[in-house]
Every structure is written in C-alpha cells, then in structure tokens.
Amino acid sequence: MLQPLTDADARARLAEFPDAVVGAAGNPITVSVPPAKWAEFAAFAKDVLGCRFFSFMSAVDWKEEGLEVIAWVDNSEGGFSLLMKTRLGAGVSGCPSLVPVYRGANWMERECFDMFGIQFEGHPDLRRMLLPEDWVGHPLLKSYAVDTPYPPYR
C-alpha cells in the first residue's frame, strides 16, 4: 500500500496546480482557486492529494465583493484537511458543480442554491433543499432581512 501523503507532501504537490493560491501554514491547508478551475481543483484534491472524505460545502456572502463558495475535504489517513475556496465575483451566481467529483456535494449544493441562489452548473437535480419550493428569495444573502415575511403572509 502507498504511504499516505502528509501535510508537507500535500503542500509540495500543490505546486502542480498553477492556479491554486495556497494560504498560511497550519491545518487546514487553505487554497483559493478561480471559479473556472473549481471542479478541476476538486478532482485534483481527491485524486492527487488523497482528500477523499467530503466534509461540507457552503458559501459566504461578502456583500459588494460577491459570493464565495467553500468546501472542506479531508485526507483521513494523512491527517490533514483542505479548505477550498473560490470567489465568484460581484453579481455572479454561477459556479461549476462538484457532484461529478464528490457525491456528498449533491445535497450541499442544493442547500447553497436554496440559501444563496448559487446556480451550480452541471448539478443533476438543482432544487431547493430545506425551504419549500414556492419560497421567494435566498435567506442567507446579507440583503435578505431576518424578519422578511414569507408568502402567503407578505
């Protein structure tokens, strides 16, 4: 059996992915990639870095700076974690889907679509996850007030 990658090995291998911007030392390894390389980088993380455990995926609304999609994956044998980030840019809501790489992204992306309105391109079944289908708006956007009344009580 191959020796599992360590944190230091993984950081060295990251040089093979030219678009990746690697963050400061320590666990997790934080990596930012452009949205166009998002799915490609996830496949790299899974196949080359051995991060097979898909922990979670979410998004952050940075107001004027736009949305950021994040995903956390683990190499459970090597004992390190990888936090992947991609900034979609102001006013952009499209992002490549990770479902072809990690099946766990299926429900997580549906939740992100539900809460942030992010359109994951290539997702097999992008529907709302937690809120009813007739819900209006995406609650975790900073522009959505906490006390927004919901239909039919508008």
Binding site: R52, F53, S55, G79, G104
Partner: peptide, 27 residues
C-alpha cells in the same frame, strides 16, 4: 468505503464501513 467517504457520512456509519476516522483520535 468509497461511497462513505465520498458522501462524507460520519461517526458509527463511517467506521462500520471500514474507515478508522474518529475526530476524538484524529484531531
């Protein structure tokens, strides 16, 4: 095992599928 890690299930489910990953031990 492959499906367990890919979906990211945890705890007893993950360990019943052959992955020795317990956060109390790993981190």
């Amino acid at each position: 095992r492959e499906l367990a890690e890919d979906v990211g299930i945890g705890g007893p489910l993950l360990r019943a599928s052959g992955v020795a990953f317990d956060l109390r031990r790993a981190q």
